[in-house]
Amino acid sequence: MEIYLPIAQMSVQWPVILGLGFVIGFLSGVFGVGGGFLLTPLLIFYGIPPGVAVATTANQIAGVTFSGVLTHWKRRSVDFKMGAVLVASGLVGSAAGVWLFAVLRRMGQAEFTVSASYVLLLGAVGAIMLNESVRTWRARRDGLSTSGNRSGQHNWVHGLPLKMRFRQSRLYISVIPPVVLGFIVGILSAVMGVGGAFVSVPAMIYILRMPTNVVVGTSMFQILFVTASTTMLHAADNYTVDTLLALILILGGVIGVQYGVRAGAKLRGEQLRFLMALIVLVVALGLFWQLVIAPADVYSLTGATP
């Protein structure tokens, strides 16, 4: 049941990798996240070199997300105009992120920076989502009316210039917040090996005030292009994309995502957000724990070049 990976240069149990791909694909279908924030740490934990894990995860997310984008396109739940703005700024961000990652790696701080940013981002995002979803859930139970589309409410975003109309999202807002969001997500994709949905989905809901039903589709659209470009950059610069590893992950992933989309359709918005908040917080706590407890060996081999 073992197979040798040509780029990672090690053999793995392929059923384990296939199962990992399925679980991540399932979560991806349910929540509209790429699942990279779980897959990258799990692959590293399994023993895949971190560089290969980051680059190959980006490719797996691109593959799994494509079927999700098609599914959402058919349901007309993708805002292509918003997606295009996010992708354009995301490509610039991912190039900046690849440069930043190279600098951090030379300093020997890449691993710590990645873990610390995971803890901060996942912790903050998870806490906000958990709080919001619990309040909505309670309000619904108590019979109070909750409006799904809060585009009528105004926040600081509406004071910014360069307004643009996004018809699919029923929004007329400044183009600055989506551009900044796209750029940040691009950096995260290159540095952390994630699609960045755990940042962009909450930002779309709470800052841009996009309707929840187009958020997931649009986020997937953005992730598809940003992860595809990240894969190309890593393949060209670092030779760290493993086709065989990606193939097994995607096979598991595309099957998982189909079941995930179906399961997700049966759950209400705030239930989805509650579950995702829990997963995000558990990962954040796990990573924080690793930074705090004394390591088994304070010395570690961080690089070997022939």
Binding site: N59, Q60, A62, G63, V64, T65, F66, S67, G68, L70, T71, A228, T231, M232, A235, V241, T243, A246, L247, I250, L251, V254, I255, V257, Q258
Partner: peptide, 13 residues
């Protein structure tokens, strides 16, 4: 590699 990933995703639908 990207095209392979996307093709697999498409085929699955």
């Amino acid at each position: 590699t990207v095209l392979m990933a996307v093709a697999l995703g498409w085929a699955s639908t």
